[in-house]
Amino acid sequence: MTKEELETTAFLARIAIGEDEKDKYLKDLNQMMSYIEVLQEPDVSSLKPTTHVTKLRNVWRDDIVKPSPKETVESLLNAAPDKEGNFYKIKKVIEAQ
């Protein structure tokens, strides 16, 4: 992983990393790259990938609305760092040109 790749990855992950931290991240992450190499070793081209181990498919439930108690809604909203009425308050998503 190069410094540029680290910066791109950190942007994609939405994690701010300081200039002074980059060397440490690069050292550790480049060490972890060896895991990827190890996994190229076996020929698994004929095998299907395992996403999970259950044999369950299409887990449905009846499409019935179960209203949450008012207190649950309130406590969920109260957990927000910033809110207005029944909404979460966030910074502007689309910046004006």
Binding site: A10, F11, R14, I15, A16, L76, A79, A80, P81, D82, Y88, I90, K91, K92, V93, E95
Partner: peptide, 19 residues
């Protein structure tokens, strides 16, 4: 940092605030 948990006070934009 929007629905719960820590929200930075230093964010200047939405993406910056997440990060």
């Amino acid at each position: 940092g929007i629905r719960y948990g820590h929200r930075s006070k230093k964010g200047v934009s939405l993406n910056d605030e997440y990060a």
